[in-house]
Amino acid sequence: MNTLQRRFFDFFAPGARRISFALTVTVVCFLFAFPVLWLILTSLRPQSGVYYVYRGLDFTLDSFVQVFANERLVQAFVNSAVIATLATIFSILVTVSSGYMLSRFRGPIASGWFGIIYALRCVPFVTWVLPLYFVEQRYGLYDSYVGLLLPHIAVHICFFSWLMKGFFDGIDPSMEQAALIDGCTRWGAFYRVALPSAVPAISALSVLSWLFSWNEFLFALILTGQHTPVITVVMAQFVSEMGMQWNLMAATAVLALVPAFLLTLFGQKYVIQGLKI
């Protein structure tokens, strides 16, 4: 459609383009939101009613009451929150310096480190989670907080170092060089000059890191047992080992969605500003 045609179209059908745009957006939003809406609907159904969701109008908050009464579930929520938060803090601490190094320096150490990171990022999780199970059992880390937390940090290192590097690449290093000339140490230049300018990237990666850890499943499945219940594993158990309790699974999932939703609601602005690749 050329400009003339478009003007013609707009003249006879004012708002037609806007209406079709709005319609498309609404349909796409509905499709994207549907599984979540369905999850919420299922969580509000009584135990027997989930099989007739498309008919009856029975709604109840009973599943949520049951979730809160379940000590193991509450424990799982606390565990997941603690691990996601600590994993976020530590993985940011570790990757901000690694990304800075990758961005500011050249030479065999920098390119070697980049090669290692890229290669390890490629390795499928199963390749190292299966043996990690034995390592953790031998050192008594299996089914403990630390045993789950440390792999959660390690898994972010490769990807986040890469993203941090991309962000530092976009920041002019002349300020740090000026600080070095003024007698600042290398650490001082990193800590006082580079770090404050990386705040957008740090906030972006914090949001992503927290979401990833909160929703992580495979590590928790293999590296935890009775003592360290984590929310994703407990939810999955509702529809396998403990029978088909769809309503309880859905209620737990809805509750698990709340913190993730709030974080995304307030954090999306920072993610979009801070992600430079």
Binding site: C29, A33, W38, A236, V239, A253, A256, T264
Partner: peptide, 24 residues
């Protein structure tokens, strides 16, 4: 609002999404 809705899948644990889809 649209942006928040489109980011919804990012907030759901993949394992839960999969269980939900299996149910659907």
């Amino acid at each position: 609002l649209v942006q928040t809705i489109l980011l919804l899948p990012l907030m759901v644990a993949p394992v839960i999404a999969a269980i939900m889809v299996r149910w659907m």
